[in-house]
C-alpha cells in the first residue's frame, strides 16, 4: 500500500516496495511513498529507524557501502534511478545532498561553490555569476561577497553549512536531500537554514531527515514517520502532527519514546 498523500499535483519521487539490506540485516522494509514536487518532505523517527538510509537511496550514496543490497523501485521524475542505463554521476547532479556536518572543501569560498560547475564544464567567464547566484540563493552572499578568496574553513559552522548548500545549488539540481542539516548548529544558524529551506522549495523538491520534530512541524509540507525500517505513516505534516492515524506515530510525536 502506498501511504498517503492524496491529490498530489505532481510527483517528483516515487518509491515502490523498497527493501534494503546491509549484509544480513534488513534496514528498510517494503517502503512505498510518493514525494510531491516543489514541497518540503520531512522524514522523522528515532535513531536507527532507517530514515537516513532511505535518504541515501535517493541519490544512490548507498552504492558506496559494501554489502548493501537493494530491491524495489525508485523513480525520480519518472525515471528508474536503479535502472541499468542510469549514470550515477549524472543522477547525483540532479539530486543534490547536504550533509549533517558542514563539510566545505579545504579551498576558498569561491572555489567551493565553483567546484561542481567547473568539473561539469561550465564556461570560465560564467563562473563569477554562477557563484554569486548560488551564494545569493543560499542567503550567504552578503556575508561572503567581500571575502570570496578566503578559506571556507574560516567561516562559522552555520555559514559553512549555507556555503555547502550554495555548493549544491551551483550544480543546479532539481531535488535536494538534507541529512539532519542543522543538528551540528546553534539555534540562530538553525533558524536561518530553516528559512532558507522553506524559501528553496519554490524551485526545488526538498527531502529532509531531521531528529527534531519541531523542525519537521515548522518547515515541512509532508512528513513521513519511520520506525524500525518501516514507513509507519506518511501524509501532510499538519495531519501527521494533529491527527496521526497510527498509535506509534502519536507516541513518537508526543514524546513517549524516541
Amino acid at each position: 500500500m502506498t501511504k498517503g498523500v492524496q491529490n498530489v499535483s505532481q510527483v517528483q519521487i516515487k518509491v515502490d516496495n523498497l527493501n534494503l539490506w546491509y549484509g544480513e540485516k534488513q534496514a528498510l522494509k517494503n517502503i512505498s511513498m510518493q514525494i510531491p514536487k516543489n514541497s518540503v518532505t520531512a522524514l522523522i523517527g528515532p535513531s536507527g529507524c532507517g530514515k537516513s538510509t532511505f535518504l541515501r537511496c535517493l541519490n544512490r550514496m548507498n552504492d558506496l557501502v559494501k554489502n548493501c543490497r537493494i530491491e524495489g523501485k525508485i523513480s525520480i521524475e519518472e525515471k528508474d534511478i536503479y535502472g541499468p542505463d542510469v549514470d550515477v554521476v549524472d543522477l547525483r547532479k540532479k539530486v543534490g545532498m547536504v550533509f549533517q556536518k558542514p563539510n566545505p572543501f579545504p579551498m576558498s569560498i569561491f572555489d567551493n561553490v565553483a567546484y561542481g560547475p567547473r568539473i561539469h564544464g561550465a564556461d570560465r567567464k560564467d563562473l563569477d555569476s554562477i557563484v554569486e547566484q548560488a551564494l545569493r540563493s543560499a542567503a550567504i552572499w552578503e556575508e561572503t561577497s567581500d571575502r570570496l578568496k578566503s578559506p571556507a574553513l574560516s567561516l562559522s559552522g552555520g555559514q559553512q553549512q549555507r556555503l555547502c548548500i550554495a555548493r549544491t545549488l551551483a550544480v543546479k539540481p532539481r531535488t535536494i536531500l538534507f541529512d539532519e542539516p542543522t543538528s551540528a548548529l546553534d539555534p540562530i544558524s538553525t533558524a536561518r537554514i530553516e528559512d532558507l529551506i522553506m524559501d528553496l522549495k519554490k524551485d526545488y523538491t526538498i527531502v529532509i531527515v531531521t531528529h527534531n520534530m519541531q523542525q519537521a512541524a515548522r518547515i515541512s509540507d509532508y512528513t513521513g514517520f519511520f520506525l524500525m525500517g518501516k514507513l509507519i505513516e506518511f501524509g501532510q505534516t499538519r495531519q501527521i502532527f494533529q491527527n496521526p492515524q497510527e498509535q506509534s506515530t502519536e507516541d513518537y510525536i508526543t514524546g513517549r519514546f524516541g
Binding site: 558506496l64 554521476v89 550533509f99 563539510n103 555548493r167
Partner: peptide, 10 residues
C-alpha cells in the same frame, strides 16, 4: 570530502 564531492555528481 569524498562523499560531498561524489554527491555533487563528480
Amino acid at each position: 570530502y569524498r562523499e560531498s564531492s561524489l554527491a555533487l555528481g563528480v
